[in-house]
């Protein structure tokens, strides 16, 4: 049975197809269609995350989503869970507070590359260092989407953005290497095209005790537009053609440069490290 709900903003009736019966309880159907652009990868992550939460074996009411500001930060608002949409960059410390106050909660932070690694960068490395028992999904779309396409800490050198019109002069973060070096227990990188792998990785993240990081590569049409990379479809095709899976990759070696010639994906790190306040 599918549920039909009238959307408050548009007045149209939206029905969640039968194929989503398993997660219909987890999606705020009355808020669809969501705000993301055509071709944005966030909608795909939303579905996968809902399924992973559903099948995590952890009671749904114990799952808490904390997000900062950005397109990615909107994901919590579409999940029928305890969700906290907090200030830009501050999702991780808010999540740390939640988890410390009630260790029974399964707290997951979802944020953009700017949200987690620029304004929230300090919180990210310190939570990894402490190995706080929370999950962090970093949606890397190589740009600040929400504010209209400025460069972010993952924008590759050379890329054009609204604030790097001559091509970006800076070097980007290598996210898995950073997470590993800072102390995360679990580090993976997937893309929204790698549905099955990403889904398994999300499930693994819920099982891991300690700081779990998944970098999710996702198309943003603001980025592809600026850089004459075609549209989201073309970006997805690049990921499809150029990505290789290597779970044992040398993390120092997996930067993604502007050419995107080499995209290494995998479940890179899983290690036992004492958890703070565990």
């Amino acid at each position: 049975m599918s549920t039909e709900v009238e959307v408050a903003t548009t007045g149209i009736k939206v029905e969640l197809p039968k194929a989503y019966d398993d997660i219909k309880d987890l999606i705020r159907i009355d808020r669809l269609p969501h705000i993301w652009c055509p071709g944005c990868g966030l909608g795909i992550l939303l579905k996968l995350l809902a399924r992973a939460i559903k099948n995590s074996g952890i009671p749904i009411e114990k799952h808490v989503i904390v997000t900062g500001i950005g397109c990615t930060g909107r994901i919590g608002g579409y999940l029928r869970l305890d969700a906290y949409h907090v200030t830009h960059g501050r999702a991780i410390p808010f999540a740390v507070g939640l988890k410390m106050a009630n260790p029974e909660l399964e707290v997951t932070v979802v944020g953009g590359d700017g949200d987690i690694l620029a304004i929230g960068g300090n919180h990210f490395i310190h939570a990894a260092r402490r190995n706080d028992d929370i999950n962090v999904i970093i949606v890397n779309n190589f740009i600040y989407g929400m504010t209209g396409g400025q460069y972010s800490p993952t924008t590759p050198k050379g890329a054009k953005t609204t604030t790097s019109p001559y091509g970006h002069f800076e070097n980007p973060f290598n996210v898995p290497l950073l997470a590993y070096a800072a102390g995360a227990s679990y580090v993976a990188r997937w893309s929204v095209l790698h549905q099955n792998e990403l889904y398994q990785s999300l499930l693994e993240m819920f099982r891991v005790k300690g700081f779990a990081v998944i970098e999710v590569l996702s198309p943003c049409i603001i980025y592809t537009d600026r850089n004459a990379m075609g549209d989201a479809v073309d970006f997805m095709k690049v990921i499809k053609e150029r990505s290789t899976i290597d779970h044992n990759a040398n993390l120092a070696d997996i930067d993604i440069d502007f050419s995107m010639k080499k995209i290494v994906l995998g479940n890179f790190v899983k290690r036992e490290r004492p958890v703070s306040y565990g």
Binding site: L16, P17, K18, A19, Y20, I27, L32, P33, H34, W36, G39, C40, G41, L42, G43, I44, L46, K47, L193, Q195, M236
Partner: peptide, 9 residues
């Protein structure tokens, strides 16, 4: 699976 919008099943 790839539809970001729940639009096609």
């Amino acid at each position: 699976k790839i539809c970001p919008e729940f639009a096609i099943t």
